[in-house]
Nucleic acid binder design. Structure first.
Length: 255
DNA sequence: AGGCATGTTACAGG
DNA sequence: ACCTGTAACATGCC
């Protein structure tokens, strides 16, 4: 899409978390996409003349490439280019697509307070210690996009398992060596997962697309009542609910 | 068969 | 101001 002009935006179903703006054609169809960037879990398409599409995939949003004009169940928006089309599909409608100019984008509630990217030097021990003095569990802290950008439910369980930190620990009770390990394994797990194309839990969602093979590397997520891969045969993985989200961990390995 | 869980976020209310 | 629970939705699994 980068460097190309979208010939037409066809809104198939505007109902997402927020309505898809109905002036996409008027505002963008003459303009070239100059750049495409990611920030946290957001995708940003940059157009000429200070126009930006801020996109979030929610739980089940995805894009597919199609050579033909086709219309499948849960399709929402079609970007038509000269020789192909890109279609946004979202089963649960938790994703969204918003149109902003530069200032609106930077001031938006979505990006304004967002924490550092986990794979940069900004996510370090000093930063962590200063911002973890809160009365919430370490699992909730890692999930907070304003603390660190981009971590989701699956990776938070995986990170704390590798770091040997109990997900129910209060974030303000962590020792520096524990903080160091959490940071180290955040970077390690993310890098590994990216290499393998991410994690696909329910592949029916993307049945005609490539799935994320990090699923095969998961050490705790989804392994309730199974034998812990670290302490081997001695303890079973437990599942608990924290802030409405499932967490998996080993009581023996994670203190 | 129906209740519950699923990769997220925003907001109401304590 | 901080924290938790819940709703938004469609689908698949016990």
């Amino acid at each position: 899409m980068r460097g190309q002009k979208t010939n037409e935006f066809k809104i198939i179903n505007n109902k997402l978390r927020y309505k898809i703006p109905n002036n996409l054609n008027k505002k963008l169809s003459k303009l070239i996409i100059t750049n495409i960037v990611r920030r946290g879990k957001y995708l940003i398409l940059e157009y000429e003349k200070s126009n930006f599409l801020l996109i979030h995939l929610g739980m089940t949003g995805f894009f597919r490439l199609s050579k033909f004009a086709e219309n499948k169940k849960h399709d929402h928006l079609l970007f038509r280019y000269k020789n192909f089309q890109i279609i946004y599909n979202d089963i649960r409608k938790f994703g969204f697509i918003k149109l902003y100019n530069q200032k609106e984008l930077n001031d938006s509630k979505h990006l304004k307070e967002m924490g550092p990217e986990p794979l940069t030097k900004d996510f370090n021990e000093t930063y962590f210690s200063n911002f973890s003095k809160r009365n919430i569990s370490i699992k909730s802290l890692l999930m907070d996009q304003n603390f660190v950008a981009g971590l989701g439910n699956i990776y938070c369980s995986e990170i704390l398992f590798e770091a040997s930190v109990n997900p129910t620990r209060q974030s303000n009770s962590l020792r520096i060596d524990e903080i160091s390990k959490i940071i180290k394994y955040t970077k390690k797990i993310l890098n590994e997962a990216i290499k393998l194309g991410g994690t696909t839990i329910k592949n029916f969602i993307v049945s005609d697309l490539k799935i994320g093979y990090f699923k095969n590397q998961l050490k705790v997520y989804g392994r309730e009542n199974k034998i812990c891969k670290k302490c081997q045969k001695q303890h079973f993985i437990e599942k608990i609910i924290q802030n409405g989200r499932s967490t998996f961990f080993c009581k023996r390995c994670q203190l």
